[in-house]
């Protein structure tokens, strides 16, 4: 099922349009930097990384929202669920297939980046670590969106997933805001978000890339484990909700 899901994913027109838009953006931005002399390599890398994180989040959110309850309606799902397969296996199969497709798209984004700017961009270990963490963030957001698809409409799912992604990327600031602000309600909400939303900013080490600060492997492992924990949590909740869902 994962294989078919992967093939299905790579045929989704909105996803492909979004992907092509990301390639055009990445390619043209890097081309602009190349033509404009004096732009440091690290700046180019940072812009690419930020674009990679942004577009991969959009791709993951869209895919998660439409993979289970596709635009064809429920009939496709009826055919699948009438087979001797547990619903949990369907969620896992969809996740694996979708994840492989997303990683392929991410790889293509990397190839375009290399094609425009050359291999030297990938000479440092730091950029590889940054790409690894960005991929992990994408998979985490994908699992979140897949989970939400079991209880929300695609539009609501996309809105919620993007909101959580945004909140997760500024979660460090949310804690600060929660402690500083006088308004009790805002302070309470900021703290709630801080404690319940995955801290996605952990997966963005663009600032380290710019500053040339090494990131230790133990920290990378911790971040990967943190991401894995959330992915497992979201998928488990997704499986439970999907197994109980009336179709």
């Amino acid at each position: 099922m994962a294989k078919v899901t992967c093939r299905e994913t790579l045929r989704k027109k909105p996803l492909i349009i979004l992907f092509i838009a990301s390639l055009i953006f990445i390619g043209s931005a890097q081309l602009f930097f190349l033509l404009k002399a004096g732009i440091p390599l690290k700046t180019m890398q940072a812009v690419w990384l930020k674009s990679l994180i942004g577009f991969s989040t959009l791709l993951a959110v869209y895919l998660g929202a439409c993979l289970l309850f596709a635009e064809e309606g429920k009939n496709k799902l009826y055919s699948l669920l009438s087979l001797p397969v547990r619903r949990g296996e369907i969620v896992i199969g969809k996740f694996i297939g979708g994840a492989v497709a997303l990683l392929l798209l991410l790889l293509l984004m990397g190839i375009v980046f290399i094609a425009v700017t050359g291999l030297k961009q990938f000479s440092s270990l730091l950029i590889w670590q940054a790409v690894l963490l960005a991929s992990w963030e994408m998979l985490l957001v994908f699992s979140l969106s897949l989970m939400l698809s079991t209880l929300a409409t695609p539009l609501l799912n996309i809105s919620l997933s993007l909101f959580v992604s945004l909140a997760g990327n500024i979660s460090a600031s949310l804690k600060f805001l929660g402690n500083q602000i006088d308004n009790l309600v805002v302070s309470f909400l900021a703290k709630i978000f801080y404690y319940f939303v995955p801290h996605l900013h952990r997966f963005d080490i663009t600032s380290n890339v710019i500053a040339g600060e090494e990131v230790t492997f133990s920290l990378i492992w911790k971040d990967l484990a943190y991401g894995f924990y959330y992915m497992a949590l979201f998928l488990t909740i997704g499986i439970i909700l999907f197994s109980r869902k009336e179709l």
Binding site: E72, N75, S82
Partner: peptide
């Protein structure tokens, strides 16, 4: 069991 749903829909690719 074999099941045919009303208005069947499959992976069209």
């Amino acid at each position: 069991i074999g099941f045919l749903t009303q208005e069947p829909c499959f992976c069209d690719f």
